[in-house]
């Protein structure tokens, strides 16, 4: 589904992402881990066609993110970190706008279906500015999946949420993955969530990809580790100590 080859992003003297080589299979839930400033958001921005890579390439379902950007956008859904949406519009109005932009046919029917899936029908006609963070995240996910994308990119989807909110989001993602077969690419630094939801993980540090493996393989390779946290620190710490 997603393949990157030496994907690099440089800002003048600073290398934000350094030769990222990544493969994400169809239907996977990929957790992209890393410390603050590691290059997660930059990588995500390149994959969602929002910024241009300095060098290297990335393809989604065979479409290049630079040359075939419009086709790539047709395949993806995106939820950035801390999205506010249009506060003065209702949930439905927000979704209608984004749905029409995504050329969704019968947008209202899709909105109803998605909101139903997210258990959000009660607040459809309320203004977004009255929503809590958890509710906004749910609407954020709704706009990202309205057009039933093949791959969903999420940047810190549970950031700032309470445990119930985190659990709700997790369940939604699992549902989307299970029912629609949507590949999920998720930036996060919540190791507990990765353990509960992801099938594959990648760890990035200072722009470099340290590891990209299925979770089961990783656990196999680090048999002595008691938790994913230990695995993470041993991989990241080992590199930082070198």
């Amino acid at each position: 589904m997603l393949v990157t080859k030496d994907l690099t992003k440089k800002y003048q003297d600073f290398t934000a992402v350094d030769k990222l080589n990544l493969t994400v299979k169809d239907g996977a839930i990929f957790g992209f881990l890393g410390h603050n400033g590691a290059g997660k958001t930059t990588s995500l921005s390149m994959l969602t066609t929002l910024i241009l890579p300095t060098s290297g390439s990335a393809t989604i379902d065979g479409f290049d993110v630079v040359k075939d950007n419009l086709q790539v956008r047709n395949l993806l859904g995106y939820l950035p970190e801390n999205v506010m949406l249009y506060g003065d519009l209702t949930a439905r109005e927000n979704l209608q706008f984004f749905g029409k932009l995504s050329k969704v046919k019968d947008v209202n029917k899709n909105i109803d279906e998605v909101l139903n899936m997210l258990n959000f029908t009660e607040w459809t006609d309320k203004k977004v500015k009255t929503f809590s963070k958890g509710m906004r995240q749910r609407i954020g996910i709704a706009q990202a999946i309205l057009h039933k994308p093949k791959i969903l990119f999420l940047d810190e989807p549970t950031s700032g949420l309470d445990p119930q909110g985190t659990k709700d989001i997790r369940n939604i993602l699992l549902k989307i993955n299970a029912e629609w077969g949507t590949t999920i690419f998720m930036n996060t630094h919540l190791l507990s969530e990765v353990t509960k939801i992801c099938t594959d993980i990648g760890i990035i540090s200072h722009g470099k990809l340290l590891v990209s493996e299925s979770l089961s393989n990783l656990k196999e390779n680090f048999k002595d580790a008691k938790s994913l946290e230990e695995i993470y620190f041993s991989i990241e710490g080992g590199v930082n100590n070198e």
Binding site: T48, R73, Y78, P80, M84, L85, Q143
Partner: peptide, 11 residues
């Protein structure tokens, strides 16, 4: 509002 990213990641 953060919607610019949502818009430009669309078609």
């Amino acid at each position: 509002s953060g919607t610019l990213k949502l818009i430009l990641s669309r078609q």
